[in-house]
Design a binder for these strands. Structure first.
Lengths: 216, 216
DNA sequence: ACCTGAACACCGTTCAAGT
DNA sequence: ACCTGAACACCGTTCAAGT
């Protein structure tokens, strides 16, 4: 009597309530009111559960109209990817562990397609377009994972992000900025970095393909 | 009779032999020939052990002469950071989990200082220099983590990185490249991406600070 | 000081058995 | 078909007890 849908919503409820690291097969079974072993009649193993959860949530993503301009389409696709993962940091963990593109079905691939097609149409070769995607993917997944782990002290004690004292002899520039580091590290600079990176990647891939403000 | 040095070398030996994910307190104790509980007289907990291991190995890193040119110094520092982590993917895992810069002692901070000082001297403000470091850090840690997990099938069966069939109606650009994706995804493009990113970040931070080929 | 076994509170997963 | 308890092979960590 336990359905796939019930399992997925209970999993999501457990993660939302207790946190991603508290998701275990045994707790999920308790959440469902069944024995842990019963779960194995519906899922192959824990990884299978995670992948199903991820696919389900990505398939529910609203799919925005992507810009016609190649460069803007790359930015918009990467931002959609980023925001989807930022909402579920556990997803980023699943994706780094299990590989990304080979895992997901077509409902998620429009974001990858948006990046690759933008690079292609900008004038990149296939090699360069894949390179553009991979570079953006690394930057995005790194941002998600680092920031997801950094916000573990929401209102607890001291934020242990940066100690304030540095040896000005050995690391003068860090010493100079140390008092402000914490504040600066909290800023959301993903989009700034993304724009910079994309423009650089596209320029490196196909320098003459598009002037500043130029058309197709 | 169990020393800190003995524990750290045994930990390293266990990781090198059996892999990072096989490192447990109990296995480490067995490796040392002592009871698991005995270990707790020498380490506070598992995380403490990991941080000690990381600090020890980073402190043993050879410290290269960094270039005088700011841009080249940023590249060289980031590359040193990347290569250090690529050699120990478990370290990247520890660092994303525990925060980076606040955790390490001065023996590791020269890499961070190299990036921040390069950005500063290029003409970036403090905000911009921290942004440069963070962007590079995200890209680097993402690359390490994704690639570390992707090489889990060294000679096993099918590499599940990318399935070869795509719906050419829905994702035409992915369909076009699908046959080559796996090969392209294996290429080491970290340095290419890094150079592109750094040049973009520095240009965005301080556009007029340095012309192409210009000096200080 | 340094080390120990027993115990606590957990994990993921398998398997023979029940309805 | 669907579900179960018991069991296996593990975890990190604590604590009272030993030398």
């Amino acid at each position: 009597m336990t359905s796939r849908a019930e399992i997925l919503t209970a999993t999501r409820r457990l993660i939302d309530r207790d946190g991603w690291e508290k998701l275990t097969i045994r707790r999920l079974a308790a959440e469902l009111g069944i024995g842990p072993t019963t779960l194995y009649h519906h899922i192959r193993d824990k990884e299978d559960l995670l992948v199903q959860l991820l696919e389900h949530h990505i398939s529910q993503l609203e799919r925005p109209e992507l810009p016609a301009d190649p460069r803007d389409r790359v930015i918009a696709s990467a931002t959609a990817l980023h925001d989807a993962l930022a909402a579920w940091p556990w997803a980023a963990e699943v994706l780094t562990t299990d590989g990304f593109v080979g895992l997901l079905d077509e409902s998620a691939l429009w974001m990858v397609e948006g990046i690759v097609s933008g690079a292609d149409e900008h004038g990149c070769t296939q090699e360069q377009s894949v390179h553009v995607f991979r570079s953006i993917w690394y930057y995005t997944v790194g941002e998600i994972l680092v920031r997801a782990h950094s916000v573990q002290w929401p209102s607890g004690g001291e934020p242990p992000v940066f100690r304030e004292t540095f040896d000005a002899e050995k690391v003068p520039h860090l010493a100079a900025v140390s008092g402000r580091w914490h504040e600066l590290a909290l800023r959301d600079t993903y989009r700034d970095g993304l724009r910079t990176f994309v423009d650089g990647l596209l320029a490196a891939g196909a320098p003459g393909a598009r002037g500043p403000g130029g058309g197709a």
